[in-house]
């Protein structure tokens, strides 16, 4: 991908945690915050620095839902499919968004790297079901129409910025 890796930044993160093996998950979280995903080179670099085998790091990075080994879009839309949201019809929202953005179960990010659509098991905002989040901002009581409206607004705002 086009991300240039600045190892100085990774070093800063590692230094903050003192290369402690137990800090691996926290380190990966911070790295992901920096790059929006976990580039392979960085994972190998971290493994060598922390003295953890690469296979192990790969194992941890692929175990947790929050880590992505592929770049994500500028806007990450998460559709909550917890029980409460599910019984309040969250799947139609997911389907509508996928259709709007030309995505599917396997293709989660738009080609222009603007949107990533994924599901999340429960955001704990069940009282507001169904909810979605866009870059961690919670949008309560969603409908397919309202979700598409949000996407259109974001597109429009970005177009104006350009």
């Amino acid at each position: 991908m086009n991300t240039t890796i600045i190892y100085g930044k990774v070093d800063q993160i590692l230094n903050r945690y003192g290369n402690k093996k137990s800090a691996l998950i926290a380190v990966l979280q911070e790295v992901q915050k920096e790059y929006h995903y976990l580039p392979q080179e960085v994972l190998s670099y971290i493994g060598d620095k922390m003295g953890i085998s690469r296979a192990r790091i790969f194992g941890v990075a692929t175990f947790y839902e929050n880590f992505s080994l592929e770049p994500k879009g500028k806007y990450v839309i998460k559709i909550c499919d917890g029980t409460a949201c599910h019984v309040k019809k969250s799947i139609p929202i997911l389907n509508a968004l996928r259709k709007e953005l030309g995505l599917n179960e396997n293709k989660r990010t738009t080609d222009d790297m603007m949107f990533t659509v994924e599901t999340v098991s429960c955001l704990g905002a069940c009282g507001l079901a169904p909810v979605i989040t866009i870059n961690d901002k919670v949008y309560p009581k969603m409908t397919p129409e309202a979700a598409i409206r949000l996407v259109k607004e974001i597109r429009e705002a970005n177009r104006l910025e350009d």
Binding site: K20, K21, S22, V60, F63, Y64, N66, V120, S121
Partner: peptide, 22 residues
Amino acid sequence: QGAGAFVCGEGSALIASIHGER
């Protein structure tokens, strides 16, 4: 902080996760 795995609510898995493991 967890990183998205329901099974980490299980005691020994939670501890493995604090250890920085799967």
